[in-house]
């Protein structure tokens, strides 16, 4: 495993994020920088990664841990290369979110919350993603996949397998 350290280019991005906040308020950059760290260091936040972010922002490691453990988008354990996050809240449930989870479970041979043996996919059920008019849906990395049917799920999984990764927080296009 490579050392937990951003490239010089990423450091420039981090510095420009820090510059958005007043002098001495660099802690404000914590959440955006954690997003970058998670995307660059394998899709989750190890304690090494969190300690590194703490040193970078000149704050205490505990200040990073308490934030990382509060927000649902930060993974404190490894996840698959493609994280399939199915919204299961009210309006999505009314429009087939449970059936969508069942279909993914059958198709990938894992239960919700688990990761496939090849480390490719994780299924996770999440709370409302603001896509209630286009239910059922799932988020994978940056992208929303909406109005899902079994056929659309098949095509999505094939595409993700072929590409080998999801679009992440740091992808610019």
């Amino acid at each position: 495993m490579s050392e937990t350290r951003f490239s010089e280019e990423t450091i420039k991005v981090v510095n420009s994020i820090v510059s958005r906040y007043p002098e001495g308020k660099q802690k404000s950059a914590l959440i955006p920088v954690l997003h970058i760290a998670q995307a660059e260091f394998g899709g989750w936040l190890s304690s090494d990664t969190m300690d590194y972010v703490a040193s970078l922002l000149e704050i205490k490691p505990i200040e990073v841990y308490e934030v990382a453990s509060f927000y649902s988008m930060f993974n404190l354990k490894p996840v698959g290369k493609c994280l399939l996050e199915v919204c299961h809240t009210g309006p999505c449930m009314l429009n087939g979110a449970e059936e969508l989870v069942s279909y993914l479970e059958r198709k990938l041979g894992i239960k919700s919350g688990e990761t496939t043996a090849d480390g490719m996919f994780t299924i996770r059920e999440v709370e409302c993603l603001g896509s209630c008019g286009t239910a059922p849906m799932l988020q994978c990395g940056r992208d929303f996949h909406e109005n899902l049917t079994n056929e659309k799920v098949d095509a999505l999984l094939d595409k993700l397998k072929a590409e080998g990764k999801q679009k992440s927080y740091v992808d610019q296009d």
Partner: peptide
């Protein structure tokens, strides 16, 4: 500037949002 949250309904409450914007738990 645009500032991202990281998954927390509570940050829609304005003072939790400000805490989050300061880099803290919401």
């Amino acid at each position: 500037y645009v500032h991202p949250g990281a998954g927390a309904y509570i940050c829609g409450e304005e003072t939790a949002l400000l805490e989050s914007l300061e880099g803290k738990r919401g």
